[in-house]
C-alpha cells in the first residue's frame, strides 16, 4: 500500500517493478523468499500459531541454556518449604512433595528434549532420506544399483517389521541406559520410515517427464538425483521431519518413562518423560507434577505439527507463488503470445 503511490498514475498493466535496492540478485531473492514465507504463514492462522510456538520454544530453550538464572524462577533442584503447592503466581506449575518448582524443571528440560527430537529426526532424515533416494533412483534389476536397492529395502523391511517403540526399547536396554544410548536406539528404529517415504516419492518423481527431459538434455544421473529429484521429494520429507520432531520427543519420554535410570531425577538436566515417571506415584494428589511435563510434550508436538502443515505450502512453488501473487500484483502472461 505504501509502495502503491509511486506506481499509480501510470497507465497500462501493473507490473511488479523490479525494485533496486542496490543489493545483489541473491539478496533480493532472499528478501522475496522471506516475504513469501510470511505471507503464506499469515494466510493460514494455524500454521502461523505453530510457527510462533516453535519460535517461542526455540528462544526459551536457548535462554535456558545460555542464561538459566534469568529464565528459571528457581534452580530446578532447590528444595524449599513450599512443598506440595498447587499452581500459583509464585509457583506457576506448583511444587512437588519436596518443594521443587515444577515450572523450572519443565523449562530446564526443554533444551534437552528439543535437542533429542532434532537429533533423531534430523539424522533419520539425512541417513534414511539419502538411502531412499539411492534405492529409489537406481533400482534397475541386475545392475549394481538394483542390488543395492534391494539390500536397502530389505533391511528397512526387517526394521519395520518390529514395532519401532519395542525395537527402540530393546536396543536401548541392551546398549545402555543413558541419554545417548536411548537416542541412538530411537534413531536405529527410526530411519527406515524416511527411507520408505523417500523411495516412494523418488519412484513417482523419476518417471515424470521432466526427469526424462533432463536426461535427454545430457544431465548426469548424479546431478539429476541431487538437483531435480531431491528438490521435488524434499517437500514431503521436510514436512514429515517437522511433525516427527514431536513424535520423537514423545517416544524418548516414553522410553525414559519405561526404563529406569535413563537420567537420574532430580538432576540439573531434567527430562519430561523422566519427570512423569518420577511423579507417577503422586498423580492422584499432586496432579500438576505430572500434568506440567505432559502438557509441555503436548505443546511441543502440536507446535511442530502445525508448522509442518504450513511448510507444505511454503515448499511447493505452486502455492507459494499463488499466495505471493495474491498479495502483490504481477504481470503473469497467460497465453502463448507470438510476435
Amino acid at each position: 500500500m505504501a509502495g502503491g503511490s509511486s506506481s499509480e498514475g501510470k497507465s497500462g498493466p501493473v507490473v511488479a517493478a523490479p525494485v533496486r535496492l542496490g543489493g545483489s540478485a541473491w539478496l533480493r531473492s532472499l528478501r522475496d523468499g522471506t516475504r513469501g514465507f510470511f505471507r503464506i504463514l499469515w494466510s493460514n492462522p494455524l500454521s502461523f500459531i505453530g510457527f510462533l510456538l516453535v519460535v517461542a520454544l526455540a528462544i526459551a530453550a536457548l535462554l535456558a541454556v545460555v542464561a538459566p538464572n534469568l529464565v528459571l524462577p528457581y534452580p530446578p533442584n532447590q528444595l524449599s518449604t513450599d512443598y506440595k503447592q498447587p499452581p500459583s503466581a509464585t509457583h506457576w506449575f506448583g511444587t512437588d512433595e519436596l518443594g521443587r518448582d515444577i515450572f523450572s524443571n519443565v523449562l530446564a528440560a526443554l533444551p534437552l528434549d528439543l535437542a533429542i527430537g532434532f537429533a533423531v529426526a534430523g539424522a533419520s532424515l539425512i541417513v534414511g532420506g539419502a538411502l531412499g533416494l539411492v534405492a529409489g533412483y537406481w533400482d534397475r534389476p541386475g545392475s549394481l544399483g538394483g542390488v543395492l536397492s534391494v539390500v536397502i529395502m530389505r533391511v528397512t523391511d526387517i526394521f519395520l517389521s518390529f514395532p519401532s517403540l519395542i525395537l527402540a526399547l530393546a536396543i536401548a536396554a541392551s546398549i545402555g541406559r543413558t541419554v545417548d544410548g536411548v537416542v541412538l536406539a530411537i534413531f536405529v528404529s527410526w530411519w527406515p520410515y524416511y527411507t520408505r517415504l523417500a523411495r516412494g516419492e523418488v519412484l513417482s518423481v523419476k518417471h515424470q517427464p521432466y526427469v526424462m527431459a533432463a536426461r535427454a538434455a545430457g544431465v548426469r544421473d548424479r546431478r539429476i538425483v541431487v538437483r531435480h529429484v531431491l528438490r521435488n521429494v524434499i517437500e514431503p520429507l521436510v514436512v514429515y521431519f517437522t511433525m516427527d520432531v514431536g513424535t520423537v520427543i514423545v517416544v524418548f519420554s516414553t522410553i525414559a518413562f519405561v526404563i529406569n535410570n535413563v537420567l537420574p531425577y532430580p538432576s540439573a538436566t531434567p527430562e519430561w518423560g523422566v519427570m512423569i515417571q518420577f511423579y507417577e506415584n503422586f498423580v492422584s494428589t499432586l496432579w500438576w507434577t505430572v500434568l506440567a511435563p505432559g502438557a509441555a510434550i503436548f505443546v511441543t508436538v502440536l507446535a511442530f505439527s502445525l508448522l509442518g502443515d504450513g511448510l507444505r505450502d511454503i515448499l511447493d512453488p505452486r502455492s507459494r507463488r499463488a499466495q505471493a501473487a495474491a498479495g502483490v500484483p504481477t504481470l503473469i502472461p497467460t497465453a502463448g503470445e507470438s510476435s
Partner: peptide, 8 residues
C-alpha cells in the same frame, strides 16, 4: 505440462 521441472 510436465516436461519442465515444477520446482525451478
Amino acid at each position: 505440462l510436465n516436461s519442465l521441472n515444477p520446482a525451478f
